[in-house]
Design a protein around this nucleic acid. Structure first.
Lengths: 149, 149
DNA sequence: TACAAAAGTTAGCTTTGGCTAAATTTTGTA
DNA sequence: TACAAAATTTAGCCAAAGCTAACTTTTGTA
């Protein structure tokens, strides 16, 4: 293989740092995105999103969910009266829809590429937060192309 | 498009939780992996890895690097006398090599797929930590296939 | 309808990985 | 060689996101 010089050594410190900074930024929104996405799913599945189910599906304890829901409230993404189930605000619904689309694009892409359905779902959970618009568009185009062929 | 049922609603709570747990586990090793990978690069590039350069390339401050290097020392991945530059242990070298290979596979795959070199490097920094062995193998095979054609 | 079980919340602890400020050590140069 | 600049470290702060224990509220059923 010819040397296409695509290794990190050829990048400037600034370019390299911006990639790492993007990862740290992504980590800060991951929790919020996972929660609204899951809340939207649970509402669609059950008609309501209850903290106990969020905890079960995320694999964390109820107090952790309770604390994180407070952050979503502060950020205006959900509405919840104490001891009641959760509704999404308009803003929350929009974010959830965007996250669900992105998740779907990543999963469909991995499956189209030959990854098993189970592993695709598993890996997508992590990958989806680190895919730029450019890469997402390429994934989407690839999947559509494969579907035609 | 036919419904291939590849949405999260069709998964059991346990299956879904295991994906989220994997993401949390990956986050715990990300820092370590980024550091040893970068240290190996700097040694190759400059003959030595100095904390000040690690800080610059990661986009964090020197005290942050100093603190995190202590963790790498505790874990037996690097050797460093105070105020001196850093060497990798055999274990550190092996981990760095594995990380660099995985990074390279992800970048080459994205480029083969049509993503620009710059964005490929940028996205890979986040994606590489969330790619299972199965998916990595599929990426690698795809890149080799494209190179032939 | 009373009460036990389930669900939700609060309080408080832990770890991780950022940060600034300040101290120490090394390096490079006048 | 002395000293200023650069590099490294230490101390101490903060926020995020996990946890357990204990408390409150709601739900379901005997």
């Amino acid at each position: 293989m010819t040397d296409t010089n695509e290794n990190a050594l050829s990048r400037s410190p600034d370019e390299q740092a911006s990639g790492f900074e993007a990862v740290r930024t992504a980590h800060q929104s991951e929790m919020v995105e996972d929660y609204v996405e899951l809340i939207a799913e649970l509402i669609q599945l059950n008609g309501a999103a209850r903290p106990v189910e969020i905890a079960e599906r995320l694999g964390v304890t109820q107090p952790t969910v309770s604390k994180n829901l407070n952050r979503l409230k502060r950020e205006g993404l959900i509405l919840q009266e104490p001891y009641r189930s959760i509704r999404l605000t308009e803003e929350g619904r929009e974010l959830a829809e965007a996250c669900r689309q992105r998740h779907r694009i990543v999963v469909d892409f991995l499956v189209a590429l030959g990854v098993s359905q189970e592993v695709a779902e598993y890996d997508a959970e992590g990958i989806e937060h680190h895919v730029s618009e450019e890469t997402l568009a390429v994934f989407h185009a690839f999947t559509k192309e494969r579907a035609k062929g």
